[in-house]
Design a protein around this nucleic acid. Structure first.
Lengths: 196, 196
DNA sequence: TAACATACTGTAATTATATACAGTAAAAAA
DNA sequence: TTTTTTACTGTATATAATTACAGTATGTTA
Protein backbone atom coordinates (compact mmCIF):
# COMPACT_ATOMS: atom_id res chain seq x y z
CA UNK A 1 0.00 0.00 0.00
CA UNK A 2 2.81 2.36 -0.81
CA UNK A 3 2.71 5.70 -2.60
CA UNK A 4 -0.85 6.50 -1.59
CA UNK A 5 -1.54 10.12 -0.70
CA UNK A 6 -3.34 10.93 2.55
CA UNK A 7 -6.57 11.64 0.67
CA UNK A 8 -6.29 8.38 -1.26
CA UNK A 9 -5.79 6.51 2.00
CA UNK A 10 -8.95 8.14 3.34
CA UNK A 11 -10.93 7.05 0.30
CA UNK A 12 -9.48 3.54 0.52
CA UNK A 13 -10.44 3.34 4.20
CA UNK A 14 -13.97 4.51 3.45
CA UNK A 15 -14.32 1.66 0.93
CA UNK A 16 -12.83 -0.85 3.37
CA UNK A 17 -15.03 0.28 6.24
CA UNK A 18 -18.13 0.29 4.10
CA UNK A 19 -17.35 -3.27 3.11
CA UNK A 20 -16.92 -4.53 6.65
CA UNK A 21 -19.96 -2.65 7.95
CA UNK A 22 -22.35 -3.19 5.05
CA UNK A 23 -20.98 -6.23 3.26
CA UNK A 24 -20.76 -4.46 -0.09
CA UNK A 25 -18.76 -1.56 -1.53
CA UNK A 26 -19.93 2.08 -1.46
CA UNK A 27 -21.08 4.11 -4.45
CA UNK A 28 -19.26 7.27 -5.55
CA UNK A 29 -22.00 9.31 -3.93
CA UNK A 30 -21.62 7.46 -0.63
CA UNK A 31 -17.86 7.99 -0.63
CA UNK A 32 -18.34 11.68 -1.43
CA UNK A 33 -20.89 12.09 1.34
CA UNK A 34 -18.71 10.37 3.94
CA UNK A 35 -15.73 12.58 3.10
CA UNK A 36 -17.81 15.73 2.56
CA UNK A 37 -16.96 16.06 -1.12
CA UNK A 38 -19.49 18.20 -2.88
CA UNK A 39 -19.01 16.43 -6.18
CA UNK A 40 -19.33 12.71 -6.85
CA UNK A 41 -16.59 13.15 -9.39
CA UNK A 42 -14.08 13.74 -6.59
CA UNK A 43 -14.73 10.17 -5.48
CA UNK A 44 -14.58 8.93 -9.06
CA UNK A 45 -11.19 10.57 -9.59
CA UNK A 46 -9.78 9.06 -6.42
CA UNK A 47 -11.08 5.65 -7.44
CA UNK A 48 -9.26 5.97 -10.75
CA UNK A 49 -6.07 6.89 -8.93
CA UNK A 50 -6.44 3.92 -6.57
CA UNK A 51 -6.97 1.58 -9.53
CA UNK A 52 -3.87 3.00 -11.20
CA UNK A 53 -1.88 2.31 -8.05
CA UNK A 54 -3.16 -1.23 -7.92
CA UNK A 55 -4.83 -1.22 -4.52
CA UNK A 56 -8.38 -1.62 -5.84
CA UNK A 57 -10.04 -3.05 -8.92
CA UNK A 58 -12.96 -1.57 -10.83
CA UNK A 59 -15.72 -3.42 -12.68
CA UNK A 60 -16.83 -0.90 -15.33
CA UNK A 61 -20.55 -0.33 -15.65
CA UNK A 62 -21.31 -2.29 -12.53
CA UNK A 63 -22.79 -0.47 -9.56
CA UNK A 64 -20.57 -0.76 -6.50
CA UNK A 65 -18.09 -2.59 -8.73
CA UNK A 66 -15.06 -2.09 -6.50
CA UNK A 67 -12.76 -4.76 -5.11
CA UNK A 68 -10.00 -4.37 -2.58
CA UNK A 69 -6.99 -6.11 -4.07
CA UNK A 70 -5.33 -6.29 -0.67
CA UNK A 71 -8.47 -7.57 0.96
CA UNK A 72 -9.03 -10.52 -1.34
CA UNK A 73 -5.59 -11.69 -0.38
CA UNK A 74 -5.84 -11.73 3.40
CA UNK A 75 -2.72 -11.45 5.50
CA UNK A 76 0.60 -12.52 3.99
CA UNK A 77 2.17 -15.68 5.36
CA UNK A 78 5.95 -15.56 5.31
CA UNK A 79 7.35 -19.05 4.89
CA UNK A 80 11.02 -18.30 5.01
CA UNK A 81 12.97 -15.10 4.81
CA UNK A 82 15.54 -14.77 2.06
CA UNK A 83 18.75 -13.08 3.14
CA UNK A 84 18.96 -9.45 2.20
CA UNK A 85 15.23 -8.97 1.64
CA UNK A 86 12.80 -7.17 3.95
CA UNK A 87 10.63 -9.72 5.73
CA UNK A 88 7.40 -8.76 3.99
CA UNK A 89 8.89 -8.54 0.50
CA UNK A 90 6.65 -10.27 -2.04
CA UNK A 91 9.37 -12.79 -2.71
CA UNK A 92 8.91 -14.14 0.82
CA UNK A 93 5.12 -14.44 0.75
CA UNK A 94 4.06 -18.10 0.71
CA UNK A 95 0.31 -17.49 0.60
CA UNK A 96 -2.33 -15.32 2.24
CA UNK A 97 -4.66 -16.31 5.04
CA UNK A 98 -7.56 -14.63 6.83
CA UNK A 99 -6.90 -13.26 10.30
CA UNK A 100 -8.79 -14.99 13.12
CA UNK A 101 -6.95 -13.09 15.85
CA UNK A 102 -8.85 -10.26 17.39
CA UNK A 103 -5.94 -7.90 16.82
CA UNK A 104 -4.03 -6.14 14.12
CA UNK A 105 -1.64 -8.51 12.35
CA UNK A 106 0.75 -7.33 9.64
CA UNK A 107 1.97 -10.77 8.63
CA UNK A 108 2.17 -14.38 9.72
CA UNK A 109 5.59 -16.00 10.05
CA UNK A 110 6.13 -19.75 9.88
CA UNK A 111 8.21 -20.88 12.86
CA UNK A 112 11.44 -22.73 12.15
CA UNK A 113 13.07 -24.84 14.85
CA UNK A 114 12.25 -25.72 18.42
CA UNK A 115 13.44 -22.65 20.28
CA UNK A 116 10.04 -21.68 21.68
CA UNK A 117 8.42 -25.00 22.51
CA UNK A 118 8.24 -24.26 26.23
CA UNK A 119 6.02 -21.32 25.38
CA UNK A 120 3.79 -23.70 23.44
CA UNK A 121 5.04 -22.48 20.08
CA UNK A 122 6.01 -25.41 17.88
CA UNK A 123 7.83 -25.79 14.59
CA UNK A 124 5.65 -24.79 11.62
CA UNK A 125 3.26 -22.79 13.76
CA UNK A 126 2.22 -19.51 12.18
CA UNK A 127 2.98 -16.57 14.43
CA UNK A 128 0.82 -13.50 13.93
CA UNK A 129 3.17 -10.50 13.99
CA UNK A 130 2.47 -6.82 14.41
CA UNK A 131 5.23 -4.69 12.95
CA UNK A 132 7.13 -2.71 15.55
CA UNK A 133 10.70 -1.56 15.91
CA UNK A 134 10.72 -1.67 19.68
CA UNK A 135 9.55 -4.14 22.26
CA UNK A 136 8.70 -4.31 25.93
CA UNK A 137 10.25 -6.67 28.43
CA UNK A 138 8.75 -10.14 28.25
CA UNK A 139 7.22 -9.83 24.80
CA UNK A 140 7.91 -12.43 22.18
CA UNK A 141 9.55 -10.68 19.26
CA UNK A 142 10.59 -11.31 15.70
CA UNK A 143 14.21 -10.20 15.69
CA UNK A 144 16.74 -9.92 12.94
CA UNK A 145 20.41 -10.43 13.76
CA UNK A 146 22.57 -9.67 10.78
CA UNK A 147 20.63 -11.59 8.16
CA UNK A 148 18.93 -14.16 10.33
CA UNK A 149 15.34 -13.87 11.53
CA UNK A 150 14.41 -15.49 14.86
CA UNK A 151 11.56 -15.66 17.32
CA UNK A 152 12.64 -15.01 20.91
CA UNK A 153 11.47 -13.54 24.17
CA UNK A 154 12.74 -10.00 24.58
CA UNK A 155 14.47 -8.87 27.78
CA UNK A 156 16.37 -5.67 28.31
CA UNK A 157 18.68 -5.18 31.32
CA UNK A 158 19.86 -1.60 31.36
CA UNK A 159 21.14 -1.32 27.83
CA UNK A 160 21.94 -4.98 27.33
CA UNK A 161 19.42 -6.83 25.20
CA UNK A 162 18.83 -10.49 25.88
CA UNK A 163 16.93 -12.72 23.48
CA UNK A 164 15.66 -15.72 25.38
CA UNK A 165 14.76 -19.06 23.84
CA UNK A 166 11.94 -20.85 25.60
CA UNK A 167 13.67 -24.23 25.52
CA UNK A 168 16.01 -25.56 28.20
CA UNK A 169 18.33 -26.94 25.53
CA UNK A 170 18.96 -23.53 24.05
CA UNK A 171 21.06 -20.82 25.59
CA UNK A 172 20.16 -17.16 25.73
CA UNK A 173 21.47 -14.85 23.08
CA UNK A 174 23.18 -11.79 24.53
CA UNK A 175 23.35 -8.98 22.05
CA UNK A 176 26.43 -6.77 22.14
CA UNK A 177 27.21 -3.53 20.40
CA UNK A 178 28.96 -5.18 17.50
CA UNK A 179 25.85 -7.09 16.46
CA UNK A 180 23.28 -5.68 14.11
CA UNK A 181 19.95 -6.25 15.87
CA UNK A 182 16.63 -5.13 14.49
CA UNK A 183 13.26 -5.77 16.10
CA UNK A 184 10.91 -6.52 13.22
CA UNK A 185 7.73 -7.01 15.18
CA UNK A 186 5.84 -8.33 18.19
CA UNK A 187 4.17 -11.74 18.19
CA UNK A 188 0.50 -11.32 19.01
CA UNK A 189 -0.94 -14.76 18.31
CA UNK A 190 -0.55 -18.24 16.92
CA UNK A 191 -2.23 -20.30 14.23
CA UNK A 192 -1.44 -24.01 13.99
CA UNK A 193 -2.59 -25.65 10.79
CA UNK A 194 -1.38 -29.15 11.57
CA UNK A 195 -1.80 -31.26 14.67
CA UNK A 196 -0.27 -34.68 15.06
CA UNK B 1 -30.50 -22.60 7.06
CA UNK B 2 -33.58 -24.73 7.55
CA UNK B 3 -36.92 -24.58 5.75
CA UNK B 4 -35.46 -23.29 2.51
CA UNK B 5 -36.91 -24.72 -0.68
CA UNK B 6 -34.55 -26.07 -3.33
CA UNK B 7 -35.08 -22.99 -5.50
CA UNK B 8 -34.41 -20.69 -2.55
CA UNK B 9 -31.20 -22.57 -1.80
CA UNK B 10 -30.15 -22.04 -5.41
CA UNK B 11 -30.76 -18.31 -5.16
CA UNK B 12 -28.94 -18.15 -1.84
CA UNK B 13 -25.97 -19.96 -3.34
CA UNK B 14 -25.88 -17.61 -6.32
CA UNK B 15 -25.66 -14.68 -3.91
CA UNK B 16 -22.98 -16.40 -1.86
CA UNK B 17 -20.91 -17.35 -4.89
CA UNK B 18 -21.22 -13.91 -6.41
CA UNK B 19 -19.92 -12.48 -3.15
CA UNK B 20 -16.89 -14.72 -2.97
CA UNK B 21 -16.07 -14.34 -6.66
CA UNK B 22 -16.81 -10.65 -7.12
CA UNK B 23 -16.58 -9.21 -3.65
CA UNK B 24 -20.05 -7.69 -3.78
CA UNK B 25 -23.63 -9.01 -4.02
CA UNK B 26 -25.46 -9.61 -7.32
CA UNK B 27 -28.32 -7.53 -8.71
CA UNK B 28 -31.76 -9.04 -9.34
CA UNK B 29 -30.93 -9.15 -13.03
CA UNK B 30 -27.67 -11.00 -12.40
CA UNK B 31 -29.41 -13.58 -10.23
CA UNK B 32 -32.10 -14.03 -12.87
CA UNK B 33 -29.53 -14.44 -15.62
CA UNK B 34 -27.50 -17.01 -13.67
CA UNK B 35 -30.58 -19.11 -12.96
CA UNK B 36 -32.17 -18.54 -16.38
CA UNK B 37 -35.18 -16.69 -15.06
CA UNK B 38 -36.79 -14.63 -17.77
CA UNK B 39 -38.06 -12.05 -15.33
CA UNK B 40 -36.06 -10.10 -12.79
CA UNK B 41 -39.08 -10.24 -10.57
CA UNK B 42 -38.49 -13.96 -10.05
CA UNK B 43 -35.24 -13.05 -8.32
CA UNK B 44 -36.94 -10.25 -6.39
CA UNK B 45 -39.59 -12.63 -5.09
CA UNK B 46 -37.02 -15.17 -3.96
CA UNK B 47 -35.07 -12.44 -2.21
CA UNK B 48 -38.19 -11.45 -0.30
CA UNK B 49 -38.72 -15.07 0.70
CA UNK B 50 -35.10 -15.38 1.87
CA UNK B 51 -35.43 -12.19 3.93
CA UNK B 52 -38.61 -13.53 5.48
CA UNK B 53 -36.78 -16.70 6.45
CA UNK B 54 -33.98 -14.72 7.99
CA UNK B 55 -31.04 -15.99 5.93
CA UNK B 56 -30.35 -12.69 4.18
CA UNK B 57 -30.91 -9.01 4.89
CA UNK B 58 -32.06 -6.35 2.45
CA UNK B 59 -31.11 -2.68 2.37
CA UNK B 60 -34.09 -1.05 0.61
CA UNK B 61 -33.29 1.36 -2.19
CA UNK B 62 -29.64 0.39 -2.21
CA UNK B 63 -28.22 -1.33 -5.28
CA UNK B 64 -26.82 -4.75 -4.41
CA UNK B 65 -28.10 -4.16 -0.89
CA UNK B 66 -28.02 -7.79 0.21
CA UNK B 67 -26.23 -9.28 3.22
CA UNK B 68 -25.77 -12.92 4.11
CA UNK B 69 -26.78 -13.24 7.74
CA UNK B 70 -24.98 -16.57 8.03
CA UNK B 71 -21.86 -15.28 6.37
CA UNK B 72 -21.31 -12.34 8.67
CA UNK B 73 -21.04 -14.88 11.44
CA UNK B 74 -17.96 -16.92 10.54
CA UNK B 75 -17.20 -20.05 12.55
CA UNK B 76 -18.70 -20.35 16.02
CA UNK B 77 -16.32 -20.21 18.96
CA UNK B 78 -17.50 -22.33 21.87
CA UNK B 79 -16.30 -20.81 25.11
CA UNK B 80 -17.68 -23.32 27.54
CA UNK B 81 -20.13 -26.14 27.19
CA UNK B 82 -23.19 -26.08 29.39
CA UNK B 83 -24.17 -29.48 30.75
CA UNK B 84 -26.97 -31.14 28.87
CA UNK B 85 -26.61 -29.04 25.72
CA UNK B 86 -25.10 -30.13 22.40
CA UNK B 87 -21.69 -28.51 21.98
CA UNK B 88 -22.68 -26.26 19.12
CA UNK B 89 -25.96 -25.10 20.64
CA UNK B 90 -26.37 -21.34 20.25
CA UNK B 91 -26.26 -20.96 24.01
CA UNK B 92 -22.64 -22.08 23.97
CA UNK B 93 -21.44 -19.78 21.19
CA UNK B 94 -19.17 -17.06 22.57
CA UNK B 95 -18.52 -15.27 19.28
CA UNK B 96 -17.69 -16.05 15.68
CA UNK B 97 -14.29 -15.91 14.04
CA UNK B 98 -12.97 -16.38 10.51
CA UNK B 99 -11.16 -19.62 9.74
CA UNK B 100 -7.46 -19.30 8.93
CA UNK B 101 -6.88 -23.06 8.86
CA UNK B 102 -6.66 -24.58 5.46
CA UNK B 103 -9.25 -27.20 6.40
CA UNK B 104 -12.89 -27.63 7.17
CA UNK B 105 -13.66 -26.50 10.72
CA UNK B 106 -17.11 -26.88 12.25
CA UNK B 107 -16.38 -24.94 15.42
CA UNK B 108 -13.61 -23.60 17.60
CA UNK B 109 -13.43 -24.73 21.23
CA UNK B 110 -11.67 -22.74 23.93
CA UNK B 111 -9.31 -25.03 25.85
CA UNK B 112 -9.77 -25.29 29.61
CA UNK B 113 -6.96 -26.60 31.80
CA UNK B 114 -3.41 -27.77 31.22
CA UNK B 115 -3.99 -31.33 30.07
CA UNK B 116 -2.44 -30.88 26.61
CA UNK B 117 0.49 -28.55 27.25
CA UNK B 118 3.08 -31.13 26.16
CA UNK B 119 1.43 -31.11 22.74
CA UNK B 120 1.85 -27.33 22.68
CA UNK B 121 -1.84 -26.72 23.39
CA UNK B 122 -2.24 -24.22 26.20
CA UNK B 123 -5.14 -23.02 28.29
CA UNK B 124 -7.41 -20.60 26.38
CA UNK B 125 -6.13 -21.76 23.00
CA UNK B 126 -8.87 -22.13 20.40
CA UNK B 127 -8.93 -25.61 18.94
CA UNK B 128 -10.39 -25.91 15.46
CA UNK B 129 -12.65 -28.96 15.47
CA UNK B 130 -14.13 -30.99 12.67
CA UNK B 131 -17.24 -32.85 13.75
CA UNK B 132 -16.81 -36.63 13.70
CA UNK B 133 -18.18 -39.47 15.78
CA UNK B 134 -15.15 -41.68 15.35
CA UNK B 135 -11.43 -41.17 15.56
CA UNK B 136 -8.20 -42.79 14.49
CA UNK B 137 -5.38 -43.77 16.79
CA UNK B 138 -3.20 -40.83 17.74
CA UNK B 139 -5.64 -38.11 16.81
CA UNK B 140 -6.49 -35.38 19.29
CA UNK B 141 -10.21 -35.54 19.91
CA UNK B 142 -12.96 -33.60 21.59
CA UNK B 143 -14.61 -36.23 23.76
CA UNK B 144 -17.64 -36.12 25.95
CA UNK B 145 -17.76 -38.33 29.00
CA UNK B 146 -21.13 -38.16 30.66
CA UNK B 147 -21.61 -34.41 30.67
CA UNK B 148 -18.01 -33.28 30.55
CA UNK B 149 -16.20 -32.22 27.41
CA UNK B 150 -12.44 -32.77 27.22
CA UNK B 151 -9.60 -32.59 24.76
CA UNK B 152 -7.42 -35.72 24.73
CA UNK B 153 -5.31 -37.88 22.49
CA UNK B 154 -7.31 -40.90 21.29
CA UNK B 155 -5.88 -44.42 21.53
CA UNK B 156 -7.76 -47.66 21.02
CA UNK B 157 -6.31 -51.00 22.15
CA UNK B 158 -8.57 -53.75 20.90
CA UNK B 159 -11.87 -52.49 22.24
CA UNK B 160 -10.48 -50.51 25.14
CA UNK B 161 -10.43 -46.78 24.57
CA UNK B 162 -7.75 -44.74 26.21
CA UNK B 163 -7.88 -40.95 26.40
CA UNK B 164 -4.38 -39.67 26.96
CA UNK B 165 -3.52 -36.28 28.46
CA UNK B 166 -0.34 -34.76 27.09
CA UNK B 167 0.93 -33.69 30.50
CA UNK B 168 3.08 -35.83 32.78
CA UNK B 169 1.10 -34.68 35.79
CA UNK B 170 -2.11 -36.12 34.41
CA UNK B 171 -2.98 -39.77 34.24
CA UNK B 172 -4.59 -41.50 31.31
CA UNK B 173 -8.32 -41.95 31.29
CA UNK B 174 -9.35 -45.53 30.62
CA UNK B 175 -12.86 -45.79 29.36
CA UNK B 176 -14.88 -48.80 30.45
CA UNK B 177 -18.24 -50.07 29.32
CA UNK B 178 -20.13 -48.31 32.08
CA UNK B 179 -19.01 -44.88 30.93
CA UNK B 180 -20.91 -42.88 28.39
CA UNK B 181 -18.26 -41.80 25.86
CA UNK B 182 -19.01 -39.78 22.76
CA UNK B 183 -16.44 -38.54 20.29
CA UNK B 184 -17.63 -35.10 19.28
CA UNK B 185 -14.90 -34.23 16.81
CA UNK B 186 -11.28 -34.22 15.73
CA UNK B 187 -8.95 -31.32 16.47
CA UNK B 188 -7.47 -30.06 13.20
CA UNK B 189 -5.71 -26.85 14.24
CA UNK B 190 -5.03 -24.21 16.84
CA UNK B 191 -5.54 -20.47 17.12
CA UNK B 192 -3.94 -18.61 20.02
CA UNK B 193 -5.24 -15.10 20.54
CA UNK B 194 -3.05 -14.20 23.49
CA UNK B 195 0.67 -14.63 24.02
CA UNK B 196 2.44 -13.70 27.22
C1' DT C 1 9.10 25.62 -18.26
C1' DA C 2 6.04 22.18 -19.76
C1' DA C 3 3.74 18.11 -18.55
C1' DC C 4 1.62 15.61 -15.14
C1' DA C 5 -0.52 14.36 -10.75
C1' DT C 6 -3.44 15.80 -7.02
C1' DA C 7 -7.70 17.57 -5.40
C1' DC C 8 -11.48 19.10 -5.98
C1' DT C 9 -16.73 21.73 -7.87
C1' DG C 10 -20.52 21.39 -11.05
C1' DT C 11 -23.44 19.60 -14.84
C1' DA C 12 -25.37 16.18 -17.49
C1' DA C 13 -26.43 11.94 -19.89
C1' DT C 14 -26.77 7.14 -20.22
C1' DT C 15 -27.32 3.05 -18.09
C1' DA C 16 -28.04 0.11 -14.05
C1' DT C 17 -31.11 -1.27 -10.56
C1' DA C 18 -34.91 -1.79 -7.29
C1' DT C 19 -39.35 -2.58 -7.01
C1' DA C 20 -44.33 -2.19 -7.69
C1' DC C 21 -48.25 -4.05 -10.32
C1' DA C 22 -50.79 -7.52 -13.12
C1' DG C 23 -51.00 -12.02 -14.29
C1' DT C 24 -50.67 -17.53 -14.52
C1' DA C 25 -50.07 -22.02 -12.49
C1' DA C 26 -49.13 -25.61 -9.31
C1' DA C 27 -48.25 -27.33 -4.82
C1' DA C 28 -48.73 -27.19 0.17
C1' DA C 29 -50.98 -25.85 4.36
C1' DA C 30 -55.03 -24.66 7.09
C1' DT D 1 -61.94 -26.54 0.27
C1' DT D 2 -60.10 -22.15 0.76
C1' DT D 3 -56.00 -19.86 1.66
C1' DT D 4 -51.27 -19.41 1.45
C1' DT D 5 -46.85 -20.29 -0.41
C1' DT D 6 -43.99 -21.22 -4.19
C1' DA D 7 -42.45 -20.15 -8.71
C1' DC D 8 -42.44 -17.89 -12.14
C1' DT D 9 -43.43 -14.21 -16.99
C1' DG D 10 -43.97 -9.57 -18.49
C1' DT D 11 -44.34 -4.51 -18.19
C1' DA D 12 -43.26 -0.23 -16.36
C1' DT D 13 -41.19 3.43 -13.70
C1' DA D 14 -38.72 6.06 -10.46
C1' DT D 15 -34.45 6.38 -8.72
C1' DA D 16 -29.66 4.83 -8.07
C1' DA D 17 -25.26 4.94 -10.04
C1' DT D 18 -21.48 5.28 -13.38
C1' DT D 19 -18.97 8.11 -15.91
C1' DA D 20 -17.74 11.57 -19.32
C1' DC D 21 -16.87 16.54 -19.93
C1' DA D 22 -15.69 21.28 -18.51
C1' DG D 23 -13.48 23.87 -15.22
C1' DT D 24 -10.18 25.78 -11.26
C1' DA D 25 -6.14 25.53 -8.42
C1' DT D 26 -1.88 23.79 -6.41
C1' DG D 27 2.02 20.96 -6.15
C1' DT D 28 5.45 17.73 -8.28
C1' DT D 29 8.29 15.78 -11.81
C1' DA D 30 10.80 15.87 -16.16
Amino acid sequence: MLNLTSQQIKVFDVIKNHLTINGYPPTRAEIAKTLNFKSVNAAESHIKALVKKGVIEKVPGSSRGIRLVEDLAGIPLIGSVAAGLPITAVENVEKNIPNPLNKHVDFFLRVKGQSMIDAGILEDDLVGVKKSSNAENGQIVVARIEDEVTLKRFKKDGNKVNLIAENKNFKDLLIDESMDLTIEGIAVGIVRENLN
